[in-house]
Design a protein around this nucleic acid. Structure first.
Lengths: 240, 240
DNA sequence: ATTACTAATATCCGAGTAG
DNA sequence: TCTACTCGGATATTAGTAA
């Protein structure tokens, strides 16, 4: 609460100054930096940069040692806390935004996949349950989609292998592989029921519509009483 | 690059305005908010808040619909990108800072633990190798320690169980449990050799000194040619 | 109620320059 | 060289209102 007050009051400039300092300190403990150099980083004059440094010191976000023409700056615990607080906050904001979407009527590809025996057997084995013969389609906003993609990057999917099969007429058809991420689905307005499922990520998918497909054992529309437009939460699970 | 220019130039205020908007939008798609309310959030007058909203719209970070006395605001993809960029950047900064410390002479507790048979057998089994009979002690800055703690929170340790043992004189002594986190250690100035190890987190530890103890199979001081003061990188591994 | 313009004012920035 | 002061000009904010 207090930290936030400190940041949000009106010293945006100081916050950004600290942020840029951290960027330039990198993995070192401290940094030698002149006010001219710091000014260049911040797109400010030497004078203002100098003032910034003084202010940061006054606030207690940095500590400074001036020896002759040299100044060594290091971030204090208080300063680190400020950065950490912002990081945590952003993380929370982004993750909170991330995990909400709207149920939508789907001619989802996923539903098609799950009905094919070669896929179904793999789903069954790798999910640990017999999935329902169709997927729940969730419409995401651009923001949500963006964030989901970013988040999935950090996770290890389990892969449903592709395969080839001879169709009637002796044409060989290729079936692509599918990436799956464990998740938990629930109604946003009623968090009592949480259902395990998986996000399906099909390789060659329509990029335009931000639709995510969920596979689960029960028929989600029934068990969660979902209709089109109902908002659901998709929680990503730590380990797959 | 361009994004950063956009943020860092001088519109700190706009960035923070967007940030606070996101905070208040939460999991919703959009938000009804008057300029008075928004002003309160930002600690600004209604007039300035109104101007901010206009600016955010001009920049293209938000989209707005005014219908009579109502205005509905939603974040655009461009706006979301700005937030994401900052998040990623902070994450990188913090993680980069996080993983560097200095080798220090240690009378580390960990070294004591690893020499006790009951512990050693567990280490051997759970690490998958026979650890060296001592730990490498890494001195962290306050900032690093803070960040490490924060980061470890999100990880699942493997636990070396505590036990009781009768000492000479029939006194029963209690040995506490130890948490371990897989990691990779390397010299900061020479990343060619990367050694697998584990961070030891002993329950009842001295809080004052920011020292982390690393357990590994080889004698790290030899294999990495470490002396006191040499900076090493500790990479945390995704899965334990 | 609202949003947002204009004019007054508070704040910030950088040139000049001292220490 | 450095940092950091003063002060005039630039910029941002707010009060008073209009729409």
């Amino acid at each position: 609460m207090e930290d936030k007050e400190e940041i949000s009051s009106e010293n945006y400039a100081n916050w950004f100054a600290l942020y840029h300092l951290c960027q330039n300190i990198g993995s070192r403990k401290a940094i030698h930096i002149s006010s001219v150099e710091f000014g260049k980083i911040l797109n400010l004059s030497q004078q203002t940069a100098s003032r910034r440094i003084n202010q940061l010191e006054d606030i207690g976000w940095i500590q400074r040692k001036i020896t002759g023409k040299d100044q060594i700056i290091r971030i204090t615990k208080k300063g680190a806390d400020v950065m950490l607080a912002m990081y945590k906050d952003l993380k929370q904001i982004l993750e909170e935004i991330l995990i909400v979407g709207e149920v939508t009527e789907g001619m989802g590809e996923g539903g098609y996949y799950v009905r094919i025996k070669e896929y179904y057997d793999q789903f069954r084995e790798k999910l640990g349950f017999k999935p329902y013969f169709g997927t729940l389609n969730i419409q995401l906003s651009d923001l949500n989609k963006e964030l989901l993609e970013e988040n999935l990057k950090n996770r290890i999917p389990f892969i449903i292998q592709g395969f080839e099969k001879e169709e009637e007429g002796y044409i060989k058809r290729k079936y692509g592989s599918v990436e799956c991420y464990d998740c938990i689905v629930s109604r946003l307005d009623d968090q009592t029921k949480k259902i395990n499922g998986a996000i399906l990520k099909i390789k060659r998918t329509h990029h335009k519509k931000n639709i995510v497909e969920i596979l689960a054992e029960p028929y989600l529309r029934d068990i969660l009483k979902l209709k089109d437009g109902v908002r659901v939460r998709i929680e990503l699970i730590k380990k797959s």
